[in-house]
């Protein structure tokens, strides 16, 4: 299937800072991709490029279009929440709905109103009088009512409490997502998107460090608990990351022979958080033990 996003050699430099450095990836339709990286890794720059908000070097095609040159056409197919709680404060809820309904050909007004009816938001109130959680709900209601092919969410749950976060992802999956749609989420709160992602992209210092489908993670990465006695044996198998734990270490191996590892101890699939640390800040020194 034709990829939704095709990026080849993306680069962007702000003064001395290389925000993106030769990043290439494809995103296929029907996926939920997590673009994950520490602050300043280049996530937002990549998203801005994809949304046509900023020009980036390299080849970039989104739904077959050039995001900067065909931004208006692109935005009929792509919706995004760049940052929550950025809705203009003077706008009324009903006006926000009316605006989207008039300018967006793919906006379904009834759907938006149905979403809003489930919340406590009064259509007559001004956004300045809503709480942060309500603004996010409103924004999400507007965006989910757009029948877009690609939804881009940049740190969508920043500053929200746990209840809203749960609700956010639940409604995203239940009310919006289907096989025709693609969602691209950036966040640095890995654990909360873990369960919904189909693909994982790690980015650090402007470079792509990992691009893997969730179902391949178990096959590709293995986590083993290692006793002190087995340290040398484990080190020989070249773990990508080692972290100390009670009574020994946890080592993460990439593409290692399972048979050899089984001799060391029981095998697990690493959590995405651990994998994130392993990829972003790898540590192969055996800490105090050595």
């Amino acid at each position: 299937m034709e990829p939704i996003i095709q990026a080849r050699g993306l680069a962007k430099r702000y003064g001395n800072h290389q925000a993106l450095n030769q990043v290439s990836f494809d995103i296929a339709p029907g996926r939920i991709v997590g673009l994950i990286g520490p602050n300043g890794a280049g996530k937002t720059t990549a998203l801005k490029g994809i949304l046509g908000l900023a020009e980036v070097e390299g080849e970039l095609s989104v739904l077959g279009m050039n995001p900067v040159k065909q931004r208006r056409e692109l935005l009929e197919q792509v919706s995004f929440i760049a940052d929550t709680a950025i809705l203009p404060r003077w706008l009324k809820v009903s006006e926000a709905v009316e605006y989207a309904a008039s300018v967006h050909p793919k906006f379904n007004r009834a759907k938006a109103e149905a979403f809003l009816a489930k919340t406590k938001i009064n259509p007559k109130s001004k956004i300045s009088s809503l709480s942060k959680g309500m603004i996010t709900q409103l924004h999400l209601s507007l965006i989910m009512a757009i029948d877009s092919k690609l939804l881009v969410l940049d740190e969508p749950t920043l500053g929200l409490d746990i209840l809203y976060r749960k609700q956010f992802y639940t409604s995203l999956l239940n009310d919006y997502f289907d096989a025709e749609k693609t969602i691209l989420i950036t966040t640095h709160q890995v654990e909360e998107v873990e369960t919904i992602l189909t693909d994982l992209v790690f980015i650090n210092d402007g470079q792509l460090v990992l691009n893997v489908a969730m179902e391949d993670i178990a096959e590709r990465f293995v986590e083993v608990h290692i006793n002190k006695q087995q340290q040398d044996q484990a080190a020989a198998l070249k773990p990508i990351h080692v972290s100390p734990r009670l009574g020994g270490h946890t080592a993460i191996f990439e593409n290692a022979e399972r048979a050899q590892l089984e001799a060391l101890g029981s095998l697990h699939t690493p959590s995405i958080t651990d994998l994130f640390v392993a990829k972003i800040q790898p540590n192969v020194a055996w800490g105090h033990a050595q």
């Binding site: 760049a82 203009p88 965006i143």
Partner: peptide
């Protein structure tokens, strides 16, 4: 004002040139 309060990102998410 829309650049100041960041709401420009919302307006830019709508297909209006």
């Amino acid at each position: 004002t829309d650049r100041k309060d960041n709401s420009i990102l919302f307006w830019k998410s709508m297909p209006v040139s």
